[in-house]
């Protein structure tokens, strides 16, 4: 009975939302802010990727909020999953077997590749699709792979905590530097350079690097907690 009621509720809600969506003028939505950003973004931020200029410049504090949400989720997971000290020592004592030769060799090959792809995506975020969030996930995947091949070798907790903290702090630090320099919080600083060059768009690539490292550390930390 309860399940039937839930199902009916879900169907009703879905029908309601679809009904609402059907009334929207899809394809003809008013482009008030959107059009203005399309026209001004490359000149104002120096970033060839307009999504990046929205994510890091126009709505930079939203991105900071999203980083903080990710951090909060990882902290909550740590709080709930953190084993008591006794349970941890018991787990540590249990020997874990490595995966076979093929997996180990494969992971050794993949690790540097994934790292370089991850950093490539992060550092080209202001030029091409991609950026800190996507690249950060690839970076975390590099550590996932090596962890799957060698479960006994735990990723260092202290290292993850430090990277996570420093990456988040440097994102805010860049914002505060702009504030101290007499601008607004998170105002893009540094020279904009030439549109489309790797070294361009001022502080936006630095912000994306901080985002990438933070996302990577956050996800690796989550994996470490789940593994315990």
């Amino acid at each position: 009975m309860h399940k039937l009621a839930s199902l009916l509720f879900a169907i009703g809600l879905a029908a309601l939302l679809i009904g609402l969506a059907a009334q929207l003028p899809l394809g003809m939505t008013p482009m008030v802010v959107g059009q203005a950003i399309l026209e001004q973004a490359p000149g104002e931020t120096g970033s060839a990727n307009i999504v990046t200029s929205v994510v890091l410049a126009y709505r930079g504090i939203d991105t900071l909020g999203e980083l903080a949400i990710l951090f909060a989720a990882a902290t909550v997971a740590g709080l709930v999953l953190a084993p008591s000290i006794h349970a941890e020592s018991r787990l540590r004592a249990k020997p874990r077997h490595d995966a076979g030769l093929v997996l180990r060799a494969g992971s050794d090959l993949l690790f540097p590749l994934l790292l370089s792809v991850g950093f490539y995506i992060v550092l080209h975020g202001h030029l091409t699709p991609g950026g800190g969030f996507q690249g950060g996930v690839v970076l975390a995947a590099a550590f996932f792979v090596s962890f799957l091949a060698r479960p006994a070798r735990q990723p260092s907790h202290v290292g993850i905590v430090l990277i996570e903290a420093l990456a988040g702090a440097s994102f805010i630090g860049i914002g505060l530097a702009a504030l101290l320099g007499g601008g607004a919080f998170l105002q893009p600083v540094l020279d904009k350079g030439t549109l489309g060059q790797l070294v361009s768009a001022g502080s936006l690539p630095l912000l994306y690097l901080a985002v990438g490292l933070k996302v990577g550390a956050e996800l690796s930390g989550l994996l470490a907690h789940l593994a315990e």
Binding site: A36, E44, A57, Y58, R59, G60, I61, A184, L186, Q187
Partner: peptide, 11 residues
């Protein structure tokens, strides 16, 4: 104005 962008473009 956060980021130094005048609203409604900025926050």
């Amino acid at each position: 104005n956060i980021g130094g962008f005048a609203p409604p473009l900025g926050i």
